[in-house]
């Protein structure tokens, strides 16, 4: 039954993609717009296949995914440390709140000139931008999560004489998990955007620079179909991560536990 519904949802999606594709193709074929603006679906798909076969787009995708995983990991660790500190100590709470107030509204890209001065232009600069865009919303979510843990769990922990390890592993982590997951979802979305825009700015002309760089290269060489094939990959990864990773994880945890926030 559930599978049926899911299958149906995908069918509906594929149906709409087909419809939009047909509309797209008919506009492209009408010749109203230059193929440099509106390449035909066939051209886009051809260009996508070419870059898959040559390995170019695969290399760029792996590069991007590697960077984002690394940065998300660093971001999550920093966010955890900051939010635990801010929950445990009033002094830190003030500091962390001030930091969030200052840094949260700053788009990472706006920091670019400074980041180039501090870190140069390598992948560490991109990692910095992603970490910056991930940490603050994560800290907000995690500290809300820690603060929202009901007091009754503490009493239960005391009453059942649980050790620190059990309290952390079996109470604090699962109790704040819905907020953690929400934070990771926001973090991922922000990181993905930050990554693509940062890659468009950096990147080695001959080397690999990620999907953002792939699109940028296609742009400067006026390969419009190539731009669209890069966009398709970005969309596909977005859908995969949302549908496969996050939805599965939610089903296995917060939805199963009835703890969705």
């Amino acid at each position: 039954m559930k599978n049926n519904l899911l299958g149906k949802r995908y069918l509906v999606r594929i149906f709409w993609i087909l419809i939009l594709g047909i509309i797209w193709e008919s506009i492209a074929l009408s010749g109203r717009f230059s193929p440099l603006i509106f390449p035909s679906v066939q051209n886009v798909i051809e260009s996508l296949f070419k870059s898959i076969i040559s390995g170019e787009i695969i290399g760029e995708t792996l590069y991007s995914l590697n960077l984002i995983c690394k940065s998300l990991f660093i971001g999550i660790i920093i966010a955890m440390v900051l939010s635990i500190l801010s929950v445990r100590s009033k002094v830190f709470e003030g500091l962390v709140e001030t930091l969030i107030a200052i840094a949260h509204p700053l788009p990472g890209i706006a920091l670019l000139p400074l980041i180039i001065l501090w870190l140069g232009t390598g992948s560490s600069a991109i990692v910095f931008i992603i970490v910056h865009s991930v940490v603050w919303p994560m800290v907000l979510n995690l500290s809300t999560g820690f603060k929202s843990i009901p007091n009754i769990y503490k009493q239960l922990g005391d009453n059942y004489e649980l050790g620190l390890f059990e309290i952390i592993r079996h109470i604090l982590i699962p109790a704040s998990f819905p907020y953690f997951l929400a934070g990771v979802k926001i973090g991922w979305a922000r990181a993905w955007r930050a990554l693509i825009s940062a890659e468009m700015v950096f990147g080695a002309a001959g080397g690999i620079g990620g999907l953002g760089w792939f699109i940028f290269k296609k742009r400067v060489f006026m390969d419009t179909a190539g731009i669209y094939s890069g966009l398709i990959v970005i969309v596909l990864i977005g859908i995969l991560v949302e549908d496969m990773l996050f939805n599965k994880l939610e089903k296995a945890t917060v939805k199963k536990w009835g703890m969705s926030i």
Partner: peptide, 18 residues
């Protein structure tokens, strides 16, 4: 080509002076 980094002129200047 592998050594090239894309930067606008002002950013490139700042990076070089750094």
């Amino acid at each position: 080509d592998d050594l090239l980094v894309t930067m606008k002129h002002p950013d490139g200047m700042n990076a070089l002076l750094g």
